[in-house]
Every structure is written in C-alpha cells, then in structure tokens.
Design a protein around this nucleic acid. Structure first.
Lengths: 194, 194
DNA sequence: GCGTAACCTTACGTGTGAGTAGGTATGCTG
DNA sequence: CAGCATACCTACTCACACGTAAGGTTACGC
C-alpha cells in the first residue's frame, strides 16, 4: 500500500497528490487509508521513513569494514547510486518534496545527519591513519559538501533514466575522493592574498 | 511588492502561502496583486526570475576575465555564497520550492544549465591551457557535481545564520578545486579490480 | 457643482480535497 | 438460523484559498 502512496507522491508532489488517488491506486477506498496510515502527513512520513530505511540498509549492506577509506567510500557511493537508479521514480521526488515542506525538514535533516556522521567517521579514521588531526567542524563541512554533491548527482541520475548508476558513482568518486584525498594529505587551498 | 511575495513564499512554501497574506504583507489588497502580477503561478515565476537574475548578476559582477581558472572559480564561489548569505531568507527556500514543484522545474533547470555551462567553459579553458582535452559530457558531469555541491552548501549556509559566507566559500573551494584540479592534471580514480 | 473615469476595497462564488458518518456484506458464535 | 462483530465502501460535510464582481473614493474635465 505504501508503494501506491510513494508512486502518487512522486508523480504529483505532496500537495498535488490526493488521498483519493492514493486509495484508488492501492485498490482500496479512502477510509481504509485513513484507518491504516492516519492523516496525509502521517502517510507521507511513513513513506519517507520506509524509503530512508531501505536506502540506509542498502548502503549499510554494501559496507565492508576494515577496508581502506577510499574503497569504503566507493562501496557506499555505488550502493547509493544503485539504490537511486533502482528507485528513480520514488526516491528523488520524495526527497525533493521532503525538502520543500517545512514540516518534513526535520525528518530529512536527521536522515542526512546520520549519513554525514558516517562520512565524518570515515574521514576521521583515514586522517588518524595518516597521523593527522583536523577539527570536527572542518570535517563536518567537508562531509556535508561531499554528501551534498552526491545528493545532487542522485537527482541528476533520477532525471536521466539512460544514465548508468555505476558510471555516475565512478564520476562522483573522482571528484570526491581526489578532493578529499588531497585534503587528507594536508594539501589545502587558500584565498589569494590581494 | 515582489519583496513581500518572496518573503511569504519563503516562510510558508508555494502552497502554504496564501495570496491574501501576500497582499496584506505588501500593504495592498488582493485584486491589486492579480492586476499587477497575474495568477499565483505567474507571481511565483516572477519572484523566481527576479531572484535568479539578481543572483546571476551578482556572480557575473564578480567575474574577472583573464584570470587563472582557480581564481575565477574562487571569485564566482565567493559571490555566490555572499549572495546566499545576504538573501538567506529568500533564496534557499525559493530554490527548494522551485525544485519541488514540477511546474517550475524547467525554469530552474534553465538557470542551472547556464551556470553549468559557465563552469564547463572554465574547466575547458583550463584544460586547453594544459594542452589536454576531455569529452564534453565528462566535463559536464564534473561541473554538475561541483554546482550540486555548491548548491548544497548554499542550503547549509541558509540554514546556519551564524556561518560565514566567505569561510564557506573557502571550504567549498578546497573540496572543489583540489578535486577538479587533480582531474585537470590528468589524475583520475578508477574502481579497484576485483 | 456635477458627471465620469481611474483606482482600490470589501465581500463573494466556486472548486477542490481532507477527513468522517453511516450503511452494507461477510464470517463467526451459540 | 439469529445475533454480533469485523472489514469495508459510498456519500457526505466542511474548510480553505484562488480568482472575481460589485461597490466606494479621489481626481479631473466642463
């Protein structure tokens, strides 16, 4: 039943979707939707949760501990783009919707926070392995940029059905790892003195 | 008058905003809004256009031709984050709204396309200076990732009023330029052979 | 002083869609 | 077979907000 809801929300957006359509698509009647999932908002949150959980599981499932940082990142990215590629219709739009609606921002922020945390951990681990150390906030912004870039490419992938998830992951890896890798080695860019 | 509209759309989102509220905030009555700007959709597009134009002008105004690529990128990023920092309330939410609403996606895609084009031009220029060449599509994806990362950090900035735009630009520059710079020098990452 | 025209407001029509009340079939128990 | 509960649907209410029609107010021409 959530499948129907995800589909409808994806096609018409949160506001554009009508509960009647969700019910019709699910093959049941409207009061049943309310009986099982509650109000429209609760329904949307349920969708969001399920998709988020699925995605996190897909990524976690691809994680192999005790691998060098770059390979762990690679596995994570590949899992992520693979997931988006397989759920093009659902994920990207749910995600965009959730960002637009103030009410769901928290939900999404929590989800992103978990991912950022993982990436920060990864970077931190790699740094320690090199015997270097960087302030937490610095790492967090870098992680945020990487996650943001990844999300954007996820959007791009969702809009380009012909694109290959694996290839997209490789491209992301190029931008992300080369940049982050440089940073990890202590190379930094600084504004030119005027 | 557009100011009022931008403000209201920002706070409540496209659907959440009522024309009554826009009118009240602008200090006039509803029929006047319709007389001057037309329907709600047209009003929103007008807002979008103005903000987009302002932003493009801010960036274009900071552009200094005949500078090395990294400095041009730096100026662009600084202008961008400066703009978002100064228009926190307006830009990010307009942007998020425009992405969520299918009707405005084209509008936004065009805007982004122009930016991506500029970045591609920049990368291409830098590449030629090094006597190297890379397929257009490749460059485009890299540019897309960079623009996406920048947009994400823009969102982050809009949500963190205490953050400093200049510092954010520097961080972005670190991730972006170090990664892109490596790519420009022919360094690439490739998936590990299994 | 009076008509008229531009301009603005209040106050309304209307459609849409969230959420619900009340009715119907199916299956279980005595 | 009667009584009852569970599961479900049809049909409704109600609120909200877009877009507009009819009515007041100020300025100017005669």
């Amino acid at each position: 039943m959530l499948d129907a809801a995800v589909r409808v929300f994806s096609r018409h957006g949160y506001h554009g979707a009508s509960m009647d359509e969700v019910a019709e698509r699910a093959g049941i009647s409207k009061p049943m939707v309310y009986a099982y999932l509650g109000t429209k908002e609760e329904l949307f949150i349920a969708c969001l949760h399920r998709e988020a959980t699925r995605m996190m599981e897909a990524i976690a499932g691809a994680a192999v501990p005790d691998l060098p940082a770059d390979e762990r990142l690679w596995h994570g990215l590949r899992a992520f783009f693979g997931f988006v590629g397989a759920h093009r219709d659902g994920w990207a739009v749910l995600y965009r919707q959730a960002r637009a609606e103030r009410a769901f921002a928290d939900e999404l922020a929590g989800m992103r926070a978990r991912i950022v945390e993982v990436v920060v951990g990864m970077l931190d681990h790699a740094l320690r392995a090199e015997g270097r150390e960087v302030a937490e906030t610095e790492l967090e912004v870098v992680a945020y940029a990487l996650v943001g870039a990844t999300e954007s490419l996820g959007d791009w992938l969702a809009d380009h059905p012909e694109a290959d998830p694996e290839k997209t992951a490789t491209r992301m890896m190029n931008v992300a790892w080369l940049g982050a890798g440089q940073l990890l080695h202590g190379v930094t860019w600084h504004p030119p003195e005027r």
